[in-house]
Amino acid sequence: MDGAGQLTKEKLIDMLRKMHTIRAFEEKADQLFALGKVHGTMHLSIGMEATAVGAIAALRPDDYITSTHRGHGHCIAKGGDVKLMMAEFLGKETGYCRGRGGSMHIADVESGNLGATGVVGGGIPTAVGAALSVQLRKTGQVVLCFFGDGAANMGIFHESLNLAAIWKLPVVFVCENNQYAMSMPVARAFPIENIADRAAAYAMPGKVVDGNDVLAVYAAVAEAVDRARAGEGPSLIECKTYRWKGHSKSDQERYRTREEVAAWKKKDPIARFEAYLLQEGLLTEEQRQAIAKEAQERIEEAVAFAESSPEPRVEEISEGVYA
């Protein structure tokens, strides 16, 4: 691991804190679902924390992101409030979307999280449009567009990357390649080794990074963000990672082996980052334990907040369809 050179110790610790918060949020979400406390489905990003945190660490607070159905991590990495997220997850009026969106549609437009979409690839053109808006308004913001390997086979992926490239829009396309589009493995869905190779078709830089190495993700995205902010146009970064949990709650995981999952768990992005920080003397064992514990506590507080929050009022069911 390297690439930490530009990052302060405080920033590195904050990144670790966010990775722990994501892990704790997702584990709690899984548990709440198992307890029957969750109405809908969810898509957990355990094992993919380095991608969300590394990429977003390269942004300014006023930059934008677009997220995906597997978007809890993006929201937390962008500085989202886990109380409001958990309330949304439980469908409460106090949630980010007043309980109307749920796990798949958490958004906080004011803080630059342009939201998660449940349609694979559906957020890619949103990011392109936001980048066009930035270019026209001349604000110097950058848009980070998350999508998965599955989305890279959608027609809208091509339309969007092409448009962003010809207009030199300030957008960074971050492909979270977690090896499966539901059950379809990338090896069967792509004739090429690396999704990032598709960048060549749009004359934009394409880079493959170890998506479980938070600093490698950070370094690659930071370079692309600088380029975008300088007006040099978009980039495509492929983060190779893995989701430890199934696609969603319906997943029996018939398409992969326990051995494969176990092998990826050995590449745990949080453990790797901690080992690095400990080795570099940037973190003590006591601090490490405290950070993990605080993350759990934050999530427990979030659950308490969500559970004690009111349900949306049926009389207000039609509010918010139109502005």
Partner: peptide, 17 residues
């Protein structure tokens, strides 16, 4: 590219245009 024409319009609208 009709998909991104509509989608980018929505994205630009969402962010102030």
């Amino acid at each position: 590219s009709e998909g991104v024409i509509a989608g980018a319009a929505a994205g630009a609208a969402l962010t102030g245009m």
